[in-house]
Nucleic acid binder design. Structure first.
Length: 582
RNA sequence: GGUCCGGUAGUUCAGCUGGUUAGAAUGCAUGCCUGUCACGCAUGAGGUCGCGAGUUCGAAUCUCGUCCGGACCGCCA
């Protein structure tokens, strides 16, 4: 028998018991006459004690152990004379009677501690060692518990989990596909799913009216700290529902997870804001509403007053920073260089400070009198001590820059608090987006998203202004999930493909099976997909999803542990009838 | 496709405007130590300064290229 208990469960109540423990050697403290060994498994750490007086031979053997050796010990649980209140097992130790060395270990390249000395690069290469660390084990356990609670909740609501294929068909819409060559069909390729979208809709057509799946999805796009080439979605779909039903159901799931994993209860329904309003007030479709500082447009108020930068701008807007008048010149300069960074792209920053003594100071005093600036103050409901930050330029870009500035300032002021969660439904997304480069419309969500009934007439006259029955769940400025009510009418679906620039023939080739299916009694349906990795990271308190994935890829899509992607042999290529260009 | 940051001992880092033998901490090894828990003390080993070229009397340091890692913009229905 390797173990009777784990290294995390013994305490004062077990005193006197004979136990067997197995695990890894965390650390050895050799005091000469006696030696302490910390034994670790994923449940905790238990101190082993060896004494020269009691058993010199055993004690000498214990001193020979090294870090990460695997051992099994038998001994008696004893009360410590010096207790350690910092650890759960700190009141006891094991007086070892028998020590079995199960395996030795090379010296690890970094320390297996919560506060490791290893850098990212090294830890990724030795991921299996990194995963031994408590911090990572905690993250993966959180992930496991969240997945369990998702299943528990959805199962209890009569959802059923159905698997869908990974080897599917490449489609021209959306992200780039990962592609898999077919040996049995030379020159032809499968694609890995970007999401099981059509399959879950087909399941609705098949009558599985409440479906979910915790499933891998694949997108061949450039990566970020919160984007992996393969990622996990909680993919859901329901039949006989309207948007309200969907939001209510998945708000329920969200609240359940918050309750079970964060002990956090929300009073009342999540707030809901139309896309248009999110853009106007926050400069983004995924606003962080843990704090206010909403963007306001002031174009009419300040345009045409002789300040060329404003007079030539399509849009002028700003945010009000409470108590911002105390910002130093250095700080406002830093904010100016922040907005001028190429990623933000603003030309400059105008500030107006309303000082405690009632005076106003601004970077545009030359152009605007004190009275004019004070009337601006009223537009923002600003008081003494506050500061306005104003940007001007092209409407879309300026709003986006203001959104970034808002986050930057809030970050500096500590308004984006860690333990606080502010969920938000963003609804009424546009159905389509115009692309200048290819001169055509693209689906903002995907081509199966239904337009709002009242906007359907606009499909012919003003497609860019058609709103969709589409929604995102945003928490603390992170897009956690998104979905829509789908099109369940084959004529409307066909029309969508037309608007997206497909000829009837192309639509037939790409989506024929799906349009056929729609004709066989498709129920009204809709759904949502949650970015599971991001959700876990949000709950775990990190921006990087890599810390919550057992074996992640780096920002070039490489797995540096197994060193892939990698070339394949000439034989494999030949079999697949593939020639590689150099 | 683009921008920025980094690469020096096993590890994390310092090393200024180029100038003696490239340092610290930690880890590791050895010795001492009977209540440690980041044990302590002493001694010691450990380096192609990512790689290549250039500038220079002289390069870890400056320049260019390249590789690797990270962050971001574009991209991600």
């Amino acid at each position: 028998m390797y173990r009777s208990h784990t290294c995390g469960e013994l305490n004062i109540s077990n005193i006197g018991s004979e136990v067997t423990l197995s695990g890894w050697v965390q650390r050895i403290r050799n005091l000469g006459g006696m030696t302490f060994v910390d034994l670790r498994d994923r449940y905790g750490i238990t101190q082993l004690v060896f004494n020269m007086d009691a058993n010199a031979d055993l004690c000498l053997r214990a001193r020979e152990l090294g870090r990460e050796y695997v051992v099994s010990v038998r001994g008696k649980v004893c009360e410590r004379s010096n207790k350690n209140p910092k650890m759960p097992t700190g009141e006891i130790e094991i007086e070892v009677e028998r020590l079995d060395l199960l395996n030795t270990s090379e010296l690890p390249p970094f320390t297996i501690e919560d506060e490791t000395d290893g850098g990212d690069e090294l830890r990724m290469k030795y991921r299996y060692l990194d995963l031994r660390r408590g911090a990572l084990q905690k993250n993966l356990y959180l992930r496991h518990r969240m997945a369990s609670e998702v299943r528990f909740y959805l199962n209890s609501m009569d959802f059923m989990e159905v698997e869908t294929p990974f080897l599917i068909k490449s489609t021209p819409e959306g992200a780039r596909d990962y592609v898999v060559p077919s040996r049995l069909n030379p020159g032809e390729f499968y694609a890995l799913p970007q999401s099981p979208q059509m399959f879950k809709q087909l399941l609705m057509i098949s009558g599985y009216d409440k479906y979910y799946q915790i499933v891998k999805c694949f997108r061949d796009e450039d990566l970020r700290a919160d984007r992996q080439p393969e990622f996990t979605q909680v993919d859901c779909e329901m039949s006989f529902v309207e948007q309200e039903d969907l939001l209510k159901t998945f708000e329920g799931l969200t609240k359940h997870l918050f309750m079970k994993l964060k002990g956090h209860e929300f009073s009342g329904p999540f707030p809901c804001t139309p896309y248009r309003q999110a853009i106007d007030s926050y400069g983004t479709d995924k606003p962080d509403i843990r704090f206010g500082m909403k963007i306001r447009e002031i174009t009419p108020a300040v345009k045409g007053e002789g300040f060329a930068i404003f007079d030539n701008a399509e849009y002028i807007g700003g945010i009000c920073v409470r108590q911002g008048a105390s910002f130093t010149r250095k700080e406002t300069d830093q904010l100016t260089s922040f907005v001028k960074k190429p990623q933000i792209g603003a030309k400059g920053l105008v500030y107006v400070k309303f000082k405690e003594d009632g005076s106003v100071s601004s970077s545009v005093d030359k152009f605007f009198g004190e009275e004019k600036l004070k009337s601006l103050m009223d537009q923002f409901n600003a008081g003494t001590g506050d500061m306005l930050l104003i940007l001007a330029g092209e409407r879309r870009k300026t709003l986006k820059a203001l959104g970034e500035l808002r986050l930057e300032v809030a970050g500096r002021l500590g308004l984006r608090k860690d333990g606080e969660f502010a969920p938000l439904w963003v609804v009424d997304f546009p159905l389509l987006e115009w692309d200048d480069e290819t001169q055509r419309y693209y689906s903002m969500h995907h081509p199966f998203t239904s337009p709002k009934d009242e906007d359907i007439p606009l499909l012919d006259t003003d497609p860019g202004n058609v709103r969709a029955n589409a929604y995102d769940l945003v928490i603390n400025g992170v897009e956690i999930g998104g979905g829509s009510v789908r099109i369940h009418n084959s004529q409307l679906q066909q029309k969508m493909f037309e608007i997206l620039g497909f000829t009837p023939r192309q639509a037939r080739e790409q989506f024929g099976f799906f349009m056929d299916a729609l004709r066989y009694g498709t129920p009204p349906h809709g759904g949502i997909a949650f970015g599971f990795d991001r959700w876990v990271a949000l709950f775990g308190g990190s921006e990087s999803i890599r810390d919550y994935i057992a074996f992640p890829k780096n920002n070039a899509g490489r797995d540096v542990m197994i060193n892939t992607p990698s070339p394949i042999s000439q034989e494999q290529l030949k079999e697949l009838k593939i020639k590689v260009e150099k």
